[in-house]
């Protein structure tokens, strides 16, 4: 591994830009992502910055059970993110649909059918601790040696 690659790995593990998208949830998980920004959990001390612009993001947090309004939109949003990138499903909704996965509803979970999901954080809602540790464990694993892997 070259020295430049080492520097890149170091920087990428300490500077993670996060965008979040709510594809139809009850807002409970949005509040937990917001709680990560609060002084108690303080997501920015780990170098994670919630930027909410897919063009500048490294990690996409997907929240919600995928309502029909997001067809064709979520895929485009995912393709706007420059590689290396990863999507994390936050909460039960993107995994199984949670309470919304009942007969006669329009939701179309899991979100993994529509975009590739790197990690799932179950819970309704998950604790901010669990969201934080998922981001911190997924990001270095995916972003380390990116240039070597894609060569």
């Amino acid at each position: 591994m070259t020295f430049l690659q080492k520097v890149k790995n170091f920087v990428r593990s300490r500077s993670i830009h996060v965008a979040y998208v709510d594809v139809g949830s009850c807002n409970g998980c949005d509040i937990e992502v917001l709680a990560c920004l609060s002084p108690r959990y303080d997501i920015e001390q780990y170098g994670i910055f919630v930027h909410n612009n897919p063009r500048e993001a490294d990690i996409l947090l997907v929240i919600g059970a995928y309502t029909p309004g997001w067809e064709e939109k979520l895929r485009g949003l995912w393709e706007k993110i420059p590689p290396p990138k990863a999507a994390i499903a936050i909460g039960n909704c993107p995994i199984s649909g949670c309470l919304f996965a009942r007969p006669h509803t329009l939701v179309d979970p899991p979100v993994a059918k529509h975009i590739p999901i790197a990690a799932q954080v179950p819970g309704c809602p998950p604790r901010p601790t669990e969201i934080l540790s998922a981001i911190l464990s997924v990001a270095p694993a995916i972003f380390a040696d990116y240039e070597v892997k894609t060569k």
Binding site: N92, I95, S96, C98, L99, Q120, P122, G123, C124
Partner: peptide, 9 residues
């Protein structure tokens, strides 16, 4: 048996 991913705790 609890199914994680469905359970809302």
């Amino acid at each position: 048996r609890i199914h994680i991913g469905h359970c809302i705790r």
